[in-house]
Nucleic acid binder design. Sequence first.
DNA 1: ACGTACATGTAACCAGTTACATGATTAA
DNA 2: TTAATCATGTAACTGGTTACATGTACGT
Lengths: 181, 181
Amino acid sequence: MSLRFAVLTLLDIEPGSGYDLKRRFERSVIHFWSASHQQMYRELHKLHGEGLLDCAEQPQEGRPDKKIYSLTDAGRDTLRTLATAPASTQKIRDPFLLQLFAGHHLPPAQLRAELERHLAEHRALLETYEAQNARFYKRPPEQRQRLWLAHQPLVLGIATEKTWINWAEQLLARLESEEAG
Amino acid sequence: MSLRFAVLTLLDIEPGSGYDLKRRFERSVIHFWSASHQQMYRELHKLHGEGLLDCAEQPQEGRPDKKIYSLTDAGRDTLRTLATAPASTQKIRDPFLLQLFAGHHLPPAQLRAELERHLAEHRALLETYEAQNARFYKRPPEQRQRLWLAHQPLVLGIATEKTWINWAEQLLARLESEEAG
DNA sequence: ACGTACATGTAACCAGTTACATGATTAA
DNA sequence: TTAATCATGTAACTGGTTACATGTACGT
């Protein structure tokens, strides 16, 4: 139900097309949820079929027509219901940790290279989060007050990435000293 | 491919049945991967069908027969290949953060109750990790040296849970002061 | 000529969850 | 007698990924 919940939440804030939603996921929700454009279109069709969304076709010149989706009353009801339902606690599922767990199958140099690759990705992620965070703090105080709750996932995202990077740096140092010694 | 990798890794350490694997997942790998018994049995059948596992039926008295699976040579080859393949970086997908993001749809008291429920779950999780960690440090130094890499996911698990709990406690304090003020 | 952004979609597959089904043993 | 642990499985469904398909516009 989470993709459904996410789609309804974003369309409730502002109507848009599948393509719009995909970009909004990437820009604002990526640190705690993600979805491909194929998932979007499938979900939008389903929601529309169930009468939770209205669809307005908007012809465009020079580019493909847009289908702008917005919530119906039934959609808003469903959103309220989903928002109230208890969410399940997320278990970690990290393929890289699995790889580490079986790390004795890899030559140490390759393991170190893998770790450095993941480190680079996490550092890049942290940078984009920090940038989003900086934009938040440039908003007027009135908006910051209103949006503080929706901002909390980003706060956690930043803390989590810092934790990851810190752990990985210590691990890297140890891998290097094991290789040297 | 990750479930496959996890199953092969555990069976490489020690052969066992689907039921055994399920328990070993819960005891040793749960903090970075999880799987239900249905997934196990399906994966074991598939791996066996592909000739990556041998299966020895072991009759038992008073309880159902066991099917003990172990790696074939082809299985060990596959495991080595999977261990070498670059793992994708995990994206966070936390339904609770989605709920927070849409938190304005919930009455504050209910939101606080939800947060407290999740906090309790994360605290319990941290406790079990700390217990596992304590058991690790009771092992003889020779074993600690040999297993240090496989122990790293647990180190990260502990740090991540602490980060989560710390974030949630600050959020809870703010929710309480907003309710009071 | 090539890549990127815009815009929507189908099909096949892989992964994970939920519900159901069976049946013995052991401890409270 | 009730619940938990041991042990294996089927079926249906939901969710997510990968590959393919189409076509315009714009910048290099």
